[in-house]
Amino acid sequence: MNPAWSVVLLTTLIGAGQGLYLALFAAQAPAPLMRIGIVLSLALLAAGLAASFFHLGRPERAWRSAAKWRTSWLSREVIALPLFMALAAAYGWTQDPAVGWAGVAACLALFVCTGMIYACLPFLQEWRTPLTVVNFILLGCASGLTLAAALAAWLHPELARASAIAALVVGALAYLGRLASLARNARLRPKSTLATAIGVKHPKITQIAQGAMGGSFNTREFFHGRPREVVRAARWTCLALVFPVPALLLLAGQPLVAFLAQYVGLLAERWYFFAEAKHPQNLYYQAIA
């Protein structure tokens, strides 16, 4: 797949916003930290929402996308995101635990919706695993907790140590989850081959022409077209910055730098998540002419 920056930003920004909300709620943070934290969480969610509009060909019709929540995880996400934002804002305003718990439920629902958008597609075998949903939750919580640690160090130093420890633990879990999915995907065998794609039972089939000389939507949307070095660099950036570097920075008492490094790592992680997924339609687009 060709990673779309709008979706990379959407999923990483709202993940951090959701994680931050969960961290604040779990810590029952005192007023100034809670207020500023909720505002920051809402800002991240709003930025993610704004980024998502750039993915649409017809953003002015975005309101229609809430219609098919019975069948479409994308539609469910479109409902869950503003619902969670509203509940998070309400909790920040009222500090009512009932509202807070409702916010937690909406937050988890949003995580599941976002993950299931990718995990529900049977054709993209790299995404078709519960690990996709688990990793969206863990990685979002990890970045939110690191951000919470940075906020606590600034506004409420008594909580700094606890939140840094939580960020380390959840970060390690998220890292393990991501390593597990990388290991799983490395062993995947594609279900479709050229033989099933065109229905000719022969082990050696080569494409001669794909029916267009200048490319098409199919070549632009499903191929990232980057050299192998770029993909490898994204993978190593992800592996280094999602947990090891932020962990060292947290231990060194630099939670804000840790969060920034981790966010860059998550951008690389999400980019690689898309780039590594091989769509079976690519079998039909192997050679131009």
Binding site: G57, R64, L121, L124
Partner: peptide
């Protein structure tokens, strides 16, 4: 259609084009 391209991801044949 809002042009989100999600349906094209869900088609294994690449039959849809924006």
């Amino acid at each position: 259609c809002i042009g989100c391209k999600y349906c094209s991801w869900a088609c294994p044949y690449g039959a849809r084009e924006v």
